[in-house]
Structures are given as C-alpha cells and as structure tokens.
Design a protein around this nucleic acid. Structure first.
Lengths: 198, 198
DNA sequence: CCATATCTACCTTCTAGTAGAATACTTGTC
DNA sequence: GACAAGTATTCTACTAGAAGGTAGATATGG
C-alpha cells in the first residue's frame, strides 16, 4: 500500500486513461475494456483498484478537482493582478485545447450528461462549478475594487458569464474542429471586462 | 407510405423520443430498448423505421436543424430589430430550459462528444454550429450598421462569443440544476452588446 | 508468511441488429 | 361493394458481441 513501486502506479495510469476517455466522450463513452487495452492489463485488475465504474470516475473527479484547486492557487501566487489571473486561466485552457487528452474540462463535459449520471458523480461536477464561479467572483470583485474591471452586473453574474463563455468556447472549438475559436472567444471575454472602463 | 394514419406517426414518435433521450445524455446515453419502452413498441419495429442508430440520429438531426432554420426565419419575420431578434432567441431557450425534454440544444450536447461520434453525425453537428454563427454574425452586423450595437470585435467573433455564451449557459443551468442562471447569463450577454454604445 | 496485485475464467445483462412470420392497410379489378 | 394482390408495419425469436462485475487461482514483494 505504501510502496506505489513505479513513479506512476497502475491505479494512476488507470485514472489518467479514464480521464482522457471521459474527456473524449463522457461517462457512457468508454468501458473498462477500453482502459484495459490502453493500460495493458485485464479488466479484472481495474476492478481490483476501482470496484465499480462509479468508484473510478468519482476518484478521478476528486483528483481532478484537487488539481484544479492547486492550479488556481498557484496561478494566484504568480499573478497578483486580477486581469493577469483571468488571462493565465484562459491561456492554460488554450494550451489544453490542442491536446485531445485534455481538450475539455472533465466537469464541464460531464455536466452536459447530468440527467444520466449517477448521483455521486453529479455532486462532484456541481461542486466544481461552484468552486470555479466562487473563485471567478472573487477575482472580478477584487478587479472591480482595484479599478482593473468595470462590471456591467454583479461580480457573481459576471463570473457566471465568464464560466459559461469559457465552457461554450471549448464546445465551439470541438464542434468546428478548430482550436483558434477558443482563444478568439476567451480573449474577447476578458477584453470586454477590461475595455469597458468608465 | 402516403397515409401516415395518425397525426403523429410512429416514426415521428420514435424521433421525438430519441431527441429527448439525446438531450438527456447524448449518443451513448440511450438504447433502442429505451425508445421501445417509451413509445410502446418492440425494438425490431424501430429498426424497421431506422435500420441503424446512426440512421436514427442523423434523421433526428436533419429534422432538428430544419426546425431551427424555420424557427430563426419566423423570428426574423416577427422581429425587425436585431436586438429584439437576439432577445427572442434567448427567450426561446429560456423557456426550453425548464422542460427536461428540450432543455439543451441537441447539437451543442452532441458537440461535446464529437471524438466518439460517427462521422455522419459530426457533419450535422458542425453544420448546425456554422448555420448558427452565420445567422448571429448577420444579426450583429445589421445591428452594428443600424446603431443598435457597438461591437468590440468583428461581427463574426462577437457572434462566436454569443454562441459560446448561450451554450455555456445551458451547461451551467444543468450543472447547478438551476434554470435561472441561464437567463442571468444570456441577459447580460445581450446587455453587453447594447449598453456598450459609443 | 502475509498483503497487494494480477491473472484466467466466468456470469448476467444490455447492445445493436437480423430473419421471418403475422398483421394491417392500400389499391386495382371486377 | 367484394376480393385479391401487394405493400407497410409490427411482431416473436434470435444472434453475436460488449457491458459491468465476480470468484478464485497465481504471482510478487516485504
């Protein structure tokens, strides 16, 4: 249990692979057999690490959300200016868009399938959205106070608009099969917040 | 073949049901058995109308896209003002959000699963996105010329931002399980275009 | 020796899809 | 209007393969 032998343990490989597969097609878009083939083990071995598919995806989401929080914390340390924080956030995603294994927010993708998702998964997805909009609300709030932004509405409603804009841009990039549209949309999203000065 | 006996033929019921199921969970989120149960026929009868799942979903998308075009044409006839056209468009979706069987754009939902979708389906989804952004580009263009809007970027890039914002708002509404967020986001989206006057 | 990890072999249910029989409707002919 | 021929539609019954999952044997390493 303590060992973890290799640098990337089998259970990490399984989680990584499952994440890529969820990003590609959501909860019902992959199977244990798909993972087994990629990781190079048998289905039963996956069940040893993650007894059920719900266990696997819930764990994957906990890990993903932890990484997101860590990433945001790092981003806040490196960029003091709220405008720079937003730019760092969208730039991060602009780079992900080019890589099929990370071209979509796992939670945004799963959110679209909420009506057919197990309730445990829905809770994680919802929690991620709340974390994201709370963070963006605080960034916009700070930016408005410091004079970097002039907000048309409340910080909260502008934050929800920003979240929606970023997720919608991921969707459009995927629909067109064109990475550039993501940057176009998110740059304009930030531009609207900074150029709207009074 | 000419008859269609009832007002809503069996194949129409199948298409309607399949559409609801796609809206709930996408291409891999439903089966012929699910449709059979709802419509009250056997699986084999569905295969008579739509030999394969790809046939069914492609037909469903052709029908959906036709309805979308008709809806937009109607909306343009009833509202001369570009601002009113955008309002009518988002109001239409605001009403859909409350009804689980139509709470998401079929093409937006399928776009998220493009990597695992049959190519015929991808083509339809992509075509819908192009139609939508072309229409919104023309609306914003007209609005800018007539003085109703002041666009921060090109009509095209603002249109892509609008599409992304609307789809992202659908996603957020589903994630939170809260219909109101859709209206908040889309109202602010329009507000930014009209209140940004020079 | 004990725990973790992986394996083979299997189960049950679901999946899309097929074959062919049994209905029900249309249509032309008398 | 009656009747047969054809055509649509639906059914039962089935298939092969994939799904998620289990039991129990076999390694592997401290």
């Amino acid at each position: 249990m303590v060992s973890m032998s290799n640098l990337t343990s089998t259970s990490d490989k399984i989680l990584q692979c499952a994440r890529s597969l969820v990003i590609a097609g959501g909860y019902n878009g992959f199977s244990y057999a798909d993972i087994a083939e990629v990781v190079g083990i048998r289905k039963a071995s996956i069940h040893h690490h993650f007894p059920s598919k719900v266990d696997l995806v819930r764990t994957l989401l906990e890990q993903y959300r932890e990484e997101a929080k860590t990433g945001i914390a790092a981003l806040e340390r490196y960029h003091a200016d709220p405008v720079d924080q937003l730019r760092a956030y969208t730039s991060y995603w602009a780079e992900c868009i080019g890589d099929p294994t990370s071209a979509f927010c796992v939670c945004a993708l799963l959110a679209s399938q909420i009506p057919v998702l197990p309730p445990e998964i829905v809770l994680e997805v919802r929690a991620h959205f709340r974390m994201l909009s709370a963070w963006l609300t605080s960034v916009l709030d700070k930016g408005a106070t410091q004079g970097g932004f002039v907000l048309a509405g409340t910080a909260r409603s502008e934050a929800e608009g920003f979240v929606a804009g970023v997720h919608g841009a991921m969707l459009s990039a995927r629909a067109y099969g064109d990475d550039k549209v993501f940057k176009v949309v998110t740059d304009s999203l930030i531009e609207k917040l900074v150029s709207n000065r009074s």
